[in-house]
Design a protein around this nucleic acid. Structure first.
Lengths: 220, 220
DNA sequence: ATAATTCTGTTGCATAAGCAACAAATTATA
DNA sequence: TATAATTTGTTGCTTATGCAACAGAATTAT
């Protein structure tokens, strides 16, 4: 399951000048990684916040079997770290560069504890962090809303309705493939396809490729 | 579904003396409510943090049909508010006193924006708030872990395993009724009962009333 | 351009799980 | 203590859904 984190930016409301000033205050130098390189492994008690200044990376879970799942996709301005991963178990979680990357690491405690050098925008940073975490929590909550429906049809319609209201339109584009959607709503893909076909035939939705249109009200 | 929030306390690490000082800084006077009284309604843009200083209360969702669900149970030291409820839709959400209650309200922005009166423990408060939100997010994440299994059996075993590891024991007590459990894992209660019976017969668990014991390893 | 991989669409089959309906046990309330 | 309300435990019936297995379309990699 891929979480596309659109949430607010860690440094929104903070100028480039102040950003640089903060980074020196946080004592954080940029590090470079080549595509494919491991940026870090998640560890139980570590509380380092990472920032992708430039490039793309992925947070992946590697299972004992060797198979991998992408937990999150990161790009310019994305943040990552144990603090944003709400599981006790960090086994097999790592961050891998998908392209050449410039990354900063900041000590979480340093962000939280108010700064002796009195960075003026510290409070702004904390507020941003808060809204990022709240946004992640909202995504989890949304996911639960979908998963807590009993049938495939109800899960699908719940998901579609959320997407629709997010786009302020009955027409929207799925943010990922149908296979990934089946994964997200935790059902068998073939069974989901069968159900989509039915919902389509019954005139509730129209769907071709990734373009979905809600046609009539669905009351669960 | 009831979320029992055990998370850390809003004012842990802050003395009674400093607590009082902060409250006067926050300009927050205690308010009293009788059992059954409505403490507040959740509103979309409101960002007020409530603290139950004494007593018990519940966060409830009232549906158009008139039926209600308890979203959260609050007791001494619990906090509540729109900030901790990660849905866009706040319709029909209210906080009701379950017993006589003393409640404080604090402006969220005042907590987040660093204090001009320079309360020394402001940073501690922010850290506590962070850990509360993270804890809530972890609970959501845990819920998803359970819900994303396909079968009732898998959901049950996932749930039991989480409880077991939380208690550091193969023996633990369910925090709510079996009906509520069916609700939590989002399956039909009778079907869940049938499955519990089977799992029991096959020797995976032992369960009587709310006491559960994991007997042998279950590999999904 | 070609090969390889992933995604989409479909079907038969077996069964897990939803629904309804009931009685007994337990817990809450008057 | 009596009564109400909720929870637990059970069953028959039906069907939705998981699983396996396949072929063609669409991407992505070489």
């Amino acid at each position: 399951m891929v979480n596309t984190v659109s949430c607010s930016h860690m440094f929104s409301g903070i100028s480039q000048e102040n950003y640089n000033r903060m980074m020196s205050c946080f004592n954080s130098a940029p590090k470079k990684y080549l595509a494919g390189e491991t940026i870090c492994f998640y560890e139980p008690k570590k509380r380092t916040v990472g920032i992708i200044e430039k490039g793309r990376a992925v947070v992946v879970k590697t299972f004992y079997s060797g198979s991998q799942t992408i937990l999150e996709q990161l790009s310019d301005g994305s943040i990552f770290g144990e603090v944003f991963y709400f599981h006790a178990n960090t086994d097999g979680i790592s961050v891998i560069a998908a392209s050449e990357c410039t990354v900063r690491f900041i000590d979480y405690e340093h962000i939280m504890t108010s700064c002796h050098n009195a960075c003026q925008h510290h409070s702004q940073l904390i507020q941003n962090l808060f809204s990022i975490i709240s946004c992640k929590a909202a995504e989890l909550s949304e996911h639960i809303d979908v998963l807590s429906h009993r049938t495939i049809r109800e899960k699908l319609m719940a998901y579609f309705q959320i997407q629709s209201s997010k786009n302020n339109s009955t027409k929207f584009k799925l943010p990922f493939s149908l296979s990934a959607l089946a994964d997200y709503i935790s059902v068998d893909r073939s069974a989901m396809m069968r159900e989509i076909k039915k919902i389509k035939e019954e005139g509730y939705i129209d769907i071709s490729q990734k373009e979905v249109t809600l046609l009539k009200e669905y009351i669960q």
